[in-house]
Design a protein around this nucleic acid. Structure first.
Lengths: 148, 148
DNA sequence: TTCATCTATTTCGTATACGAACAAACTCAC
DNA sequence: GTGAGTTTGTTCGTATACGAAATAGATGAA
């Protein structure tokens, strides 16, 4: 006779706690916001992504990313390059000591990930992943279609 | 041989999708941000909470909430009252048509919740709730203690 | 009483994020 | 080619959120 969990609220709580902690840590260690770290992580895996691709990958609007990249460029961590054929396209590349920053952070993030998952066995981890993916995929549809 | 899910990223994706959808919907239907709705939901359940209590319940800094309440007060949805004995305390009360707004929204939110959980059986829902609670509770500790 | 200290909230400065509106570059039908 | 419409990114205005510092009230020890 347990009621269903309030997914909405629980997701928000979990996210807030996690993101705030990571953001604080990231600002303290590297002077970068979490999103800025996200950009670096992404580019370290694949340089030359377009601004739009990076925005999509980070679930961020292009307008938000545009200003973020401005600040990162000023700090010399990222460089805007032009797309070869297409003059509209902006391709992003790592610069300065961005690679070193990522190299330092990535194992730390993996560690957090492992620790957070430690209390859950493989089957449970699958459920968790399935749930989060499900929410990411269908949230908009579900929320939009609901009756007014 | 499946790798563990990247919890961090998945939580972020799920949250972003969910919150953005709900926020857009809320602004469209009621002209309120999601956080503002959160304040109303909370006060509808228990009026007269202090500003600090509301901030904690919503995982929000007091400074953030202070300005938010300013705007809600201007719109006549909330009222600042004084704590009886203690002059520092600000107690919050619903005003205007706040109650009607909540009455309209609450069943909708319940619907979203049910739909999001529909593909998961009771046991799986328990795992999901346990995981989200776990993250909310230990994220800060885990992220802070990690090696530099 | 009175001064130091603690607590609850507000103010301040900055970063982040959104959507709308815009500009520039491309594509395609003709 | 030319003009309509699309795609890509930037700019603009506003709301949200944070942390640090300031304010105002409460509490307690001398």
């Amino acid at each position: 006779m347990t009621r269903p969990p309030k997914v909405f609220f629980l997701v928000h709580k979990a996210h807030t706690a996690l993101i705030r902690a990571v953001d604080r840590r990231s600002r303290r260690d590297a002077g970068l916001s979490m999103t800025q770290q996200g950009v670096l992580f992404l580019l370290e895996r694949q340089e030359g992504l377009t601004l739009g691709e990076v925005a999509d990958a980070l679930s961020l609007g292009k307008s938000s990313l545009s200003g973020l990249i401005d600040r990162m460029e000023e700090r010399g961590l990222v460089r805007r390059g032009s797309g070869e054929g297409d003059g509209r396209i902006v391709r992003l590349f790592l610069a300065g000591d961005a690679r070193a920053l990522v190299a330092k952070s990535r194992p730390m993030v993996s560690g957090w990930n492992a620790t957070l998952l430690a209390p859950f066995d493989a089957a449970e981890q699958k459920v968790i992943a399935r749930f989060l993916t499900h929410v990411a995929e269908y949230a908009e549809e579900i929320v939009e279609e609901g009756a007014t």
